[in-house]
Nucleic acid binder design. Structure first.
Lengths: 357, 357
DNA sequence: ATGAAAGCGCTAACAT
DNA sequence: ATGTTAGCGCTTTCAT
């Protein structure tokens, strides 16, 4: 179309041409002074900058992107920014991005592949220079292929994706889960439940079908620890899909129902909170009646009574490392894809005790 | 410049022209079919869409914005996305924005006006259609004027700004603080401290200088409640700038020092967490030795022992309402600026008791 | 219904 | 050092 760009309130945008005219130089010269590239004499630069100030010039980053092909913007898609895990990872990524001169466009996928697809479409359309994604599915990699096919650098964080060879930053979830579960096993527990809200098709746990690779790893570590002491049918102790029934409801059922669960491994701090509340509402006590361990050192785990023993993840670092890798790719790094596995560390508090009676 | 847009991996982007050529129609026609506007015959539309699929066409939203002047993007600048308050408000805003077809660019200001200025500059340069900001300063409104001068719709949330007449969404902080403080007063406390981490110049509290209007309102409510029972020199009980000394350190000083503080009003859940930890480290108990009330119903306040009595804010709604107002402005609403004040509600738990001995 | 062409604001050859 | 000009991918008159 042709009408000049108007601000929403109807004033015309000040452009390079306007500044150029006011400073009585060519558009190119004004652009050079304004964009701080090419060669401009001291005197002219001053004149241009003065005119720019006077007119209230604000560069149009979109036009610049159109010209240069680079937007200096990263996209990040997370499950839910309200989840402290994602908030911290996002912050870690944002800090690295900003330090390198990049901005961040944020999208929530709600752990839903279709919403994720839309979000990625938007980011691509906005021509982000690269994408950071904690994919809603490690199994169905269609969305990730879209990014790759579009030729945009992609870095996965928190979750890997089967057969997608791009830089990935995850935590050592399997060993973490093993360690966490062993605490319970060593205290004498055998009826231990693993709970996650991740969606999972069907009733039986199939590791390759778990939509989050990090949860899959945690399940593996959990199973490792149970198998090590010969717990029969360990898979029966894994409860995914907890959102369907509700974590609190599920917890009540496990504890008061026939399973006689005496200890719980919560796959994240939100699950742990639900478990904690349910146990309390049952009038039971942690760890006397039920032991509880969880992933992520959320605020509340330290101030709850008793404190919850957790496997802390270096969440900021996960986001930061992902952003670093992405920026490196954007800058043209052509090395083969790497997977960076960050260590978790145990924070022992008071939520584990031997099973009652 | 002139080289065609390349993807970072070196492939050329598919454009409307390419699709047009493949479908053997003009660029204009292809664009109409692709962009779903204007009139296109059934047959041609199908041909174009088929070609588009075949070539893997992805619209360039930036080029579209260049043409139309609208980006369908909102900017949001918050203090820190890791703060659960902002995470929730952001989510509320994002949901409303997405439902209306807008995306969100997120920036953290770290409650620093200079960082905020940069963030706003970036958003403006990216030609967001409007801005949501929880301003780092309700007093120095330079940054907000920048937005207004640039002619972009602006909506303030969580904090109003002195003399800036734009739509604003805040909570009823003064009455909330009064109610919260009265709980303490009614229990018999007189040596009550109000703690906030908001920066504040000088040693004495001057309400008009408090950089967050919501904190200022809380301080007012706090002072109201103290004045109502004739506490002398109530201002002396207000402690801002707590980040300088550290909330925990300050808490220790107040409780064990000469002031003989018996109760604390925490201006937000992060402050409350610091207070809670400090009290516990002193080997004291809430509420037996110290009573504590706070703003925001953070996760931990419900599971801590004892539970913390809080003034809950409708945080999602604050973000959502702000986004609604902004979108309305973008759509051309010309009504005078409104300030929407959302109610807070008290959640009484067990952190208040009469002062000890 | 379709096409030709101009233009959004900027950058980057290519002159001079 | 400065200017001229073409072009990024799209939308939008204006013709036909």
């Amino acid at each position: 179309m042709s009408e000049p760009a108007m601000t929403p309130n109807g004033r015309r945008e000040v452009t390079v041409s306007d500044v150029a005219a006011a400073a009585r130089v060519s558009k190119a010269t004004a652009a050079r002074a304004l964009g701080d590239y090419g060669a401009v004499s001291e005197a002219v630069r001053d004149r241009v900058l003065a005119a720019s100030d006077r007119l209230g010039y604000r560069p149009n980053a979109l036009a610049r992107t159109m010209s240069t092909g680079r937007s200096n913007t990263l996209g990040i898609v997370v499950g839910d920014i309200e989840n402290p895990f994602f908030a911290q990872a996002t912050r870690g990524a944002a800090d690295v991005a900003n330090a390198a001169g990049f901005d961040l466009i944020l999208s929530n996928s709600d752990e839903d592949s279709e919403i994720e697809a839309k979000a990625i479409g938007v980011q691509l359309a906005k021509r982000v220079d690269g994408l950071l994604v904690a994919s809603a599915s490690s199994v169905d990699t269609t969305n990730l292929r879209t990014v790759i096919d579009a030729g945009r650098p992609l870095v996965l964080f928190d979750r890997a994706a089967h057969g997608v060879e791009v830089d990935t930053v995850i935590a050592a979830n399997r060993s973490g889960a093993r360690e966490l579960t062993s605490l319970l096993v060593d205290a004498g527990h055998r009826r231990i439940a693993f709970i996650s809200t991740i969606d999972h098709p069907g009733g039986v746990v199939r590791l390759d079908d778990i939509s989050s690779s990090s949860v899959a790893e945690r399940v593996e570590g959990f199973l490792d620890a149970l198998a090590a002491v010969g717990v029969p049918d360990p898979e029966a102790h894994v409860h995914l899909n907890a959102r369907r029934e509700g974590v609190e409801q599920l917890t009540r059922r496990l504890i008061t129902g026939g399973t006689g669960t005496t200890a719980i491994v919560a796959s994240d701090s939100l699950v742990a909170l639900g478990v904690y509340r349910a146990v309390r509402e049952l009038g039971l006590q942690i760890p006397r009646d039920v032991s509880l361990v969880a992933f992520d050192d959320a605020d509340w785990t330290g101030v709850a009574t008793p404190g919850i023993t957790v496997m802390a993840q270096p969440i900021h670092e996960i986001g930061a490392a992902a952003a670093e890798l992405l920026i490196r790719r954007i800058r043209g790094d052509g090395r083969p894809a790497v997977t960076r596995v960050l260590k978790q560390h145990l924070i022992e508090r008071e939520s584990v005790a031997p099973p009652a009676g």
